[in-house]
Nucleic acid binder design. Sequence first.
DNA 1: CTCCAAAAATGACCGTGGTCAATTTATAAG
DNA 2: CTTATAAATTGACCACGGTCATTTTTGGAG
Lengths: 192, 192
Amino acid sequence: MQKTVQKRTLKTRARLIEAAEDVIERNGYQALRVEDVVQAAGVAKGTFFAHFRDKDALMEMLIGERLVACFDQVEQGSAPHTAPEIADALQPIHAFMTSERYVFDLIIRYSGATAITEIGPIARCFERYVHLVAGWLETAKVRKDISPDLLAEGVQAFAIQSMSLKFCALHEAESFSDRLEIYLDAWLTPAA
Amino acid sequence: MQKTVQKRTLKTRARLIEAAEDVIERNGYQALRVEDVVQAAGVAKGTFFAHFRDKDALMEMLIGERLVACFDQVEQGSAPHTAPEIADALQPIHAFMTSERYVFDLIIRYSGATAITEIGPIARCFERYVHLVAGWLETAKVRKDISPDLLAEGVQAFAIQSMSLKFCALHEAESFSDRLEIYLDAWLTPAA
DNA sequence: CTCCAAAAATGACCGTGGTCAATTTATAAG
DNA sequence: CTTATAAATTGACCACGGTCATTTTTGGAG
């Protein structure tokens, strides 16, 4: 039983990814067609699916990479201590997640791994989100009656709610960041 | 400029809907194929798309109807007063929403109307959810420092979070209802 | 009844994601 | 260098949602 991976494989895969990134650069994630990618990469269609389970798998990888970069950026900054500061600190992540409706939908769809064996970059980012925020909350001026982890899960829930409403015509009145701040203030620092 | 609607139209539409419901009855929402529906209804494929903008439009209608029925049922019951009672009262709605992954995804996708002119039954149900819960909260034993509407939006956010995690292999430990109760208790009756 | 314009239905056709048996290419062993 | 075998690639093909020019049906006017 051989399991050698030929150099060719890595080259082809790299060409496919680069081609996909070019296509996305020009027209956004939503407009990507597998045909365009394989033509730009100079390979046959079947080759694409030998490298990626399906189109979504490529998208999960590419969007996941960008998302990871957003997290890296956010983790560079210093820890925020109040609800508005937290909302502000998370802004780069939320901005990318809502940059395209397609991107938001895909991220939500892949936010939970269906099986342990297929935990992808996006599902990992959702765990990282909770850990990151929970870390901040340990030393932040917030309620202490429940665990930082639970508080952080709530922050995530409110962020998703706020992002959903951003795409909703019924709730155009408030801006995304205003809404999130209101939620987080009520969740993290309740008055009664 | 005539705009008469022939009787035929209503009949064909009814046949399509009945056929779709039969197909769903047998194999669930996810497995529905337009080909199967038109064949069962005894019409051509083009006819389907003369009656429904696309497959999703039919799905939104059918799932929306079932969702409305769930709300009607929940509204029959008496108003709950505590966090666990609220979670319990909403159970029929949450149960249907998570009955199939496909159903949950479609509901989330249609929960926000993209344009005012196309507010569908599902988007309307999301508004109804907030109004329903806000009504309960007015007389419930919960924090009073923020408005019932905002509190209700939070309940919705936590419910969606809990439902998402139900489909996630990383969070199988806790059951859906346990998780929702923990969230709602922390959100509605904070200790500090 | 006949006639005709609008409404409805039709089905061949298209776009795009995805499959798979057949072919080509890389590499290790002799 | 050959040869055997597994890995990689190919492209014709399929499934399914969706379109649209053409045909059929309806129902009111004369």
